[in-house]
Design a protein around this nucleic acid. Structure first.
Lengths: 254, 254
DNA sequence: TGTTGACCCTCACATGATGTCAGGCCGCAT
DNA sequence: ATGCGGCCTGACATCATGTGAGGGTCAACA
């Protein structure tokens, strides 16, 4: 008898991985996950195959086609592949966070009986299957953003947050003005002036996403003018990450 | 001529929404997104249709079948639907965060040239298309968790974080012991004792996910014994949310 | 030793979301 | 009136996946 070390039959692997037997056979057929075939015709999978399958699943979760995955795996440099994939996956995770925020926004508008602006309805859904929205963002806000992001990242390493109540009160007042301004369609330079004042106040507070109450005003701003998220992202790179939390609280409160 | 108020032709809607013309026609055919048909045979979409399409896209992003979406939309209570959907979507977002953390874990193991334990390989991929992993978690850690989560949420509202360096140093020491213990296969009561000590120290620090350095030890714990995430989630509900950040930094450093 | 039940094999067809192409109207601008 | 862009229907293609039929393999147990 052959040495039978840590080799799995198709059913075991199916249970283990959550992939159906049908699909494992398919993956074998198309050369995506080749199995060792015994004399009895059975498929056997070893440790290397298990790792390969895991990698396949990472890519499949990214809606990659099986053929594409196969050619990807054909090259060497597993580590490089995984690292590149991590970044793409992170982007998708971010897309989903944006969708969540937008969903909360839709809910709030529904509660209020208001309709969203048509241009905003479909922003949360990343077209072109990838990074289309991001392209739009770059197109719209251009090169200064990259620089601003750098600045913000630099500043992020500095001093701890200051939550004195007077400061927060003052911040909220500015936010109210901003919301008003945005509703009235202030644009370009004027709006940027206000945004800048706001940034000045809020600057050293960005670091703690846990002080949600301090940012309730942001929800209003987002409702009034969703584009401001993109502008703010340049100043406070974490913002869109917090937005779902902010919006969730807000939606629950309204 | 008919009053022509804010009604869109199929191509305009396609550009607006990112859904292909082909699909919009299909949605019309199966009654998912009925259009008003003009005498010329053209399809026209009004504001209500736009909102409906947005909702459809929210569900489609959740991998819901078109037929399922249609029956869903057939009932009233748009608000309720959206709210229920938000929770499911949040769950999926969490799944993706877990996947990211696991991907980082895989990367680190690859860099080290180590293999993951087979039982851990496929945990990040939510089987049964939904909430299967969560079920497992409840099955494994049971009812006390819900209670612990409550306690933790309560505690969360209390006092601000204390980041004195001595405290952090001591924390790190405990973490090192924990990692050691987990590697040696300590189980049950002993492990829980250690975890509890750790919790004691880290308790009031959970609130700021921004102090990543304070939690580098967690990455090691996760590598040594991924299950601990589930245990910790009970004590610190936000943890799995931070895990991707923690792991990203760690993977970059190793 | 023979039977049984769980597992494996191949082959073929189904389905659901989407793309693509062909052949032909509609309508506005030149 | 001519032309071009947008719209129509209908048919076929593709990809990931499910399902079922008809039939071997293997281990345990009577």
């Amino acid at each position: 008898m052959n040495t039978r070390i840590a080799t799995y039959r198709i059913g075991e692997l199916a249970r283990l991985s959550g992939v159906s037997v049908r699909m494992l056979r398919h993956y074998d057929d198309i050369g995506l996950l080749p199995a060792m075939t015994g004399e009895n015709g059975y498929r056997y999978y070893d440790g290397a195959a298990l790792k390969r399958l895991q990698e396949i699943l990472f890519y499949r979760a990214f809606d990659m086609g099986l053929e594409e995955i196969r050619t990807l795996l054909a090259g060497g440099d597993r580590l490089g592949r995984l690292q590149r994939h991590r970044d793409r996956l992170r982007g998708k995770h971010q897309d989903m966070a944006n969708m969540l925020a937008a969903l909360d926004r839709t809910i709030v508008m529904e509660k209020r009986g208001q309709d969203m602006r048509i241009e905003d309805l479909y922003k949360p859904f990343p077209a072109e299957k990838q990074a289309e929205y991001e392209a739009w963002l770059v197109r719209t806000y251009g090169a200064d953003m990259a620089e601003a992001v750098q600045r913000a990242k630099q500043a992020e390493r500095e001093d701890p947050t200051d939550f004195r109540p007077e400061k927060i009160a003052e911040l909220k007042e500015i936010e109210a003005k901003l919301v008003q301004a945005m509703k009235e369609g202030l644009n370009g330079a004027d709006l940027d002036t206000l945004l800048d004042r706001h940034r000045g106040w809020v600057g050293d507070m960005w670091k703690s996403p846990c002080e949600k109450d301090a940012y309730a005003g942001l929800a209003d701003m987002y409702l009034a003018h969703p584009d401001f998220v993109a502008r703010y992202e340049a100043l406070a790179p974490k913002f869109s990450q917090w937005l779902p939390m902010v919006m969730k609280d807000y939606a629950a409160r309204v």
